[in-house]
Computed example of a mutant assay.
Amino acid sequence: MKIEEVRQHVTTPLTAPAFAPVVPRFTDREYLNIVYRTDADALRAVVPEPLQVEEPLVRFEVMKMGDVSGYGPYTESGQAIEVSFDGERGEYLHAMYLDNFPATASGREVSAYPKTAGSPKLYVDNGVLVGTLDYGTLRVATATMGYKHHALDVREAERQITVPTFMLKTIPGYDGAPRVQELVRTEITDVVVKEAYTAPARLQLFQHVLAPLADLPVLEVVSASHIRTDLTLAPVKPVFDYLKGVRS
């Protein structure tokens, strides 16, 4: 394979890429979102500067992907922390667990999503929308929400899922030190909200050393939403370089 041909690839193995070089379109992505209040000191211990924590709010999410170009259906779960950067309010993606390797590899390599392996599920059980997350054989999160109790305004639903998203991108060099270390920003675009609901909800987090969601304890459930939508993820853009100590 010639040098020019190698340069056209963005992942390995060269002859069997870990993921397809496409911009994925998400069709029928179904969200269970539970926003909860947590311990402010615990949040500040995990949110990297220059992001700022103004309110100690975390959004636990389970997302069931109905269909995704390049990846197919899969399910994902994680935590997003309410933050601000240079006066702009958004969310810092703290942790994401999913059951699809191509989506995991692409999210980490092409973008900066903090993705790792997990076993999340989203389903309806006896009038309740249930979201669970297992790490290996152990349960680390269980969320329950009344199923389609009250319609949620479509504009509010869109606002909830289109806030700017911040992530930390770290790529080590061969000496073990960071070769790239950036704070990046992205957002959701081309949104079509198909359904949106709100209802009472509960969230339980269980201690696990390799999936430490419970380090951000649930003190109070603030709100919950159930949203079905089509969307596209915008490319990431660097906004702060940690190695140079400057904004991009």
Rank of each mutant, 00 (worst) to 15 (best):
T162A: 09
T162H: 07
V191N: 05
V35D: 13
V184L: 03
N126K: 13
P235N: 06
A45P: 01
Y242G: 02
S69Y: 10
T229C: 15
L205Q: 04
Y123G: 06
T142D: 13
V221Y: 01
L98Y: 03
V10D: 15
V154L: 12
D41A: 14
D153L: 06
V218K: 00
H208A: 03
V58L: 04
E76S: 10
T11Y: 07
H9C: 09
D99R: 03
R202L: 08
G173F: 11
P24K: 04
V83S: 02
N33Y: 13
G118A: 03
Y147T: 04
L213D: 00
Q181L: 13
V6L: 15
E91R: 14
V192A: 13
V22H: 09
D125V: 08
A45W: 06
V35M: 12
E182R: 11
A18F: 13
A224M: 06
Y74R: 06
R7H: 11
R37V: 04
T232Q: 14
R185S: 08
R89D: 14
E5R: 09
G146W: 00
A117C: 11
V236W: 09
T165L: 15
V58T: 02
Q79M: 14
I227W: 07
T142P: 05
F240G: 00
V246F: 10
G245N: 11
P235Y: 05
T116N: 07
D230Y: 03
G245F: 08
H149M: 10
R37A: 06
P120N: 04
A211D: 03
P217D: 01
R44N: 12
D86S: 13
Q79R: 08
A211Y: 01
P73T: 07
V68W: 08
S111E: 13
R37K: 12
D99P: 05
V154G: 03
T189I: 14
V124D: 05
E158Q: 10
L233D: 11
L205A: 01
K121S: 15
K121P: 05
D67I: 09
Y242R: 00
L152K: 03
R139T: 08
G173A: 05
D134G: 09
P200S: 08
V110C: 08
Y97M: 06
V236R: 06
T186Q: 09
L213P: 00
V35E: 13
F60R: 01
L216H: 03
S248E: 14
I34S: 00
A112F: 10
Y135I: 11
L93A: 07
V221M: 03
F166N: 01
F240I: 04
L168Y: 08
D67E: 14
V47F: 05
Y97S: 05
R108Y: 12
V124C: 09
